[in-house]
Design a protein around this nucleic acid. Structure first.
Lengths: 199, 199
DNA sequence: GGCATTTGTGCAAAAATTGCACATAATTTG
DNA sequence: CAAATTATGTGCAATTTTTGCACAAATGCC
C-alpha cells in the first residue's frame, strides 16, 4: 500500500516531495532543475502566503525556504516568520533555510526555532541535496516514518510502557517505591511489569 | 531541599552554577570574573578531559565551552566532541559554545547536536550572560526542573498512555481499527481507554 | 447495486491491578 | 551502636481491565 523512500540506485530519483520557496523566480527555476534531477517531485512557490495551502494538499517532505523575501528587510525575520508558521503545523515537513547573508546569529536562531539545516548562497548542489535528504530522513524517524500517510513503525503501548518504566527506575535510582509512585502504579504492579519486560 | 533559580534582584546573583571550559587560561580568568559578578558559582576548567568528573560531582547548570582546544585544528571538531560527550550524559547541563572562528556550518552543526546557544569572540558580556540564563531556563523547563536531582514531575504511565493513544488516533486519522493495531491493543480496549481518557 | 470493511456495543472468560499482610533487609538518626 | 524508620520481595483474594467473539448498522469501494 505504501511505496515511500525506497531504493536510490543510480539514475533513480528519491521518492520525496520538495517544496522550494523563494521570491526570486529565476532562482526558483534553477533550483527546480537542480533538485528535479534527484527528487521525484519538486514544487515551486514564489509567494509564501500560499505555503499553508500547498502543505495542506500535497504530501511535502521538505521545504527549502529563502530567508529574505522583502529586499528592504535583510535580517531574515521573514524567513523566521514562515519557519515558525510551517513548524507550528501538525505534521511539519523538514525545513532547510537558504540565505545570501551568512549571519551566525540568524543561523543559530533558525536552528533554535526548529529548522533542520541552513544553507548559504552560493551553494553546492550536491551538498544541498544531501542536506535535504538528511533532514527528511531525520524527520521521518522522528515522526515514526509516516511521511507517506501510512505509518511504518509506531511504538506500541507496551513498548512505551517499558521505556517509561526503565526511565522511572533510572530516575528513582532503583528505589522501587519511588519509581512506582512516579509511574502512578502500585508497587506490586511495578514488580509484575518488570518481570514481564525483563527489567 | 533544593533552592535553585530564585530571585534575581539588583545586585543579587543568579543561583546557578556555570562551568567554563577553555584552554586559554587568561581567558578563563576573564570569564570567571565577568560571570562571577552575576552567577553564584563559576567553575573553570582548562582541561576538557576532566569535564566528566566535574559534572559528576557538582550540580552544574550550564557549561560554556570553547570550540577549539588544539590550536592546530581550528575546525571545531574538538568542541563538537566534547559537546556530544556532555549531551550524552544522563541529565546534561545547558551548553553554550564559544568560538573565535565564526563559521556558520559549525554553528548549525552544533545546534543540531544539541547545543543551546552559540557565541562568537569577541563577545558582549551582557548578551553572553543573557544567553546563559536563557539556556538554563529552557533546560530547566525541559527537564521539569529536576536539576537538583529530585524529580519534580514525571509522566505517569496513564498520562503517557493517553498521549500515545491521542497520537495514534491522529496518525490513523481516527481509523479505530488501525489505531488499535498501532497501539498493540484490541479494538475493544481502545474504546474503553478512549472513554476513560475522554478522547 | 453489491461486497468488504469499519463501527459501536454487549457479554463472559482470562489476565492484570490493587490493597493488604508479613518477614527480612537496608538506611537513617540520635 | 542500637532503635526507629523505610524499603524489599512475595503471597493472596477482591476488583478492574483486557480480550475475543458476536452482531446489526454504517460506511466505503468497484
Amino acid at each position: 500500500m505504501s511505496q515511500t523512500k525506497l531504493f536510490a540506485r543510480m539514475n533513480e530519483k528519491y521518492d520525496y516531495h520538495i517544496l522550494v520557496i523563494d521570491d526570486n523566480v529565476a532562482l526558483l527555476q534553477t533550483l527546480k532543475l537542480v533538485l528535479g534531477s534527484r527528487f521525484k517531485r519538486v514544487g515551486v512557490l514564489s509567494n509564501p502566503q500560499l505555503i499553508s495551502g500547498v502543505l495542506n494538499s500535497g504530501n511535502v517532505d521538505a521545504v527549502l525556504l529563502d530567508m529574505n523575501f522583502d529586499a528592504r528587510k535583510l535580517d531574515g525575520s521573514d524567513g523566521l516568520f514562515w519557519l515558525d508558521n510551517i513548524k507550528s503545523r501538525n505534521n511539519p515537513p523538514a525545513v532547510v533555510l537558504i540565505t545570501a547573508f551568512g549571519d551566525i546569529d540568524l543561523a543559530v536562531e533558525s536552528m533554535k526555532r526548529g529548522a533542520d539545516d541552513f544553507v548559504t548562497k552560493p551553494w553546492d548542489n550536491e551538498s544541498l541535496i544531501k542536506k535535504l535528504l538528511k533532514a527528511i530522513e531525520k524527520r521521518n524517524v522522528a515522526n515514526g516514518g509516516e511521511a507517506a500517510g501510512v505509518p511504518a513503525q509506531f511504538q506500541t503501548i507496551e513498548e512505551a510502557e517499558r521505556e517509561k518504566i526503565a526511565k522511572a527506575l533510572e530516575t528513582a535510582k532503583n528505589n522501587m517505591t519511588l519509581a512506582a509512585g512516579l509511574l502512578g502504579i502500585s508497587r506490586r504492579t511495578l514488580y509484575n511489569k518488570m518481570q514481564k519486560y525483563g527489567l
